[in-house]
Write a protein that binds this DNA or RNA. Structure first.
Lengths: 152, 152
DNA sequence: ATAATGTCTATCTAACTAGTAGGGATAAGC
DNA sequence: GCTTATCCCTACTAGTTAGATAGACATTAT
């Protein structure tokens, strides 16, 4: 299960990305419409800002806007921000690689091999699907890079 | 990341399943060869016994043996035993289904839709691959039910 | 009887989750 | 230039979980 924090982050991002271009959304407004504890949400939005995903305006008529376009932000990126490494084993993580203490051989470790397959499958979705895909309900094609449907 | 408990369980199961038919393996032996805290491992093996996966013999020359064949035990089954539901959201779990408190519509929830895809992909591996597959290094074919290679 | 095993229950510590709290900084509007 | 609405930052807390550790009991081969 993903944390509430991560789930709130997705709810907030989808709300902000749905706004008309340039229109800011306040943390209070998001908290109210999505039943998220306000002060908790503020922390989350702050994290998203520090990560370069959101931008903010302070003061009256302030709020949050997207800093990067929604179709450049993958579910995996956001999830990693709040959950840390998504790999099921430390020896499968690219960014947080760590060998298991008692590991004899990574090349022959059955656990690593099978979980590697599961992780690959999951990553193929999470690292390719973006907030934009989710908002537009873009169809999901199995092959990354293969354009299933193209507008225009 | 999966818990140490789950990882230890897999190590132990693979070790026990690798034994010649009917030969028991003691918790002390497994703990020693895999650098697992002995008393911690005992709890894990007990859980596996209660789940009907292992059988045990007590007393001198006791130990653990497989109760069910290794090729009938999926990674998903073992993982669920120690980690609980694998679904990333409560509304995606079959066994532990729970609606999100603030859910407006599951059918249109973007978060549910995208995580559902990731979960499907991961489950397709975890619920189809067995301890036997792992031990024999069986090739992994994408389509379930399609026999990639068949002995005999 | 003894020793080696599995079985059961309780306890402990550190970290993490999910918040709550209380300000301080900034900007708009009167 | 005061007020108010917003974001920004840090600290704190209660409850849960992870990862063991400990000790006694039950069973069985020798």
């Amino acid at each position: 299960m993903i944390s509430n924090k991560a789930k709130y982050a997705f709810r907030a991002l989808l709300a902000i990305a749905s706004q008309p271009e340039g229109e800011a959304l306040t943390s209070a407004e998001i908290a109210r419409t999505h039943s998220i504890p306000h002060k908790f949400l503020e922390q989350i939005l702050l994290d998203l800002k520090k990560a370069g995903i959101l931008d903010s305006r302070r003061g009256k008529s302030g709020g949050y806007v997207m800093l990067r376009p929604a179709d450049t932000i993958s579910f995996g990126e956001v999830l990693r921000l709040f959950e840390g490494p998504l790999a099921p084993l430390p020896c499968l993580s690219r960014n947080a690689y760590r060998r298991c203490e008692d590991c004899v051989s990574e090349a022959t470790c059955e656990i690593r091999r099978e979980f590697g397959r599961a992780y690959d499958a999951s990553r193929q979705v999470l690292d390719s699907r973006t907030l934009g895909d989710a908002l537009h309900n873009n169809p999901y094609g199995v092959e990354p890079g293969h354009e299933v449907r193209r507008a225009g």
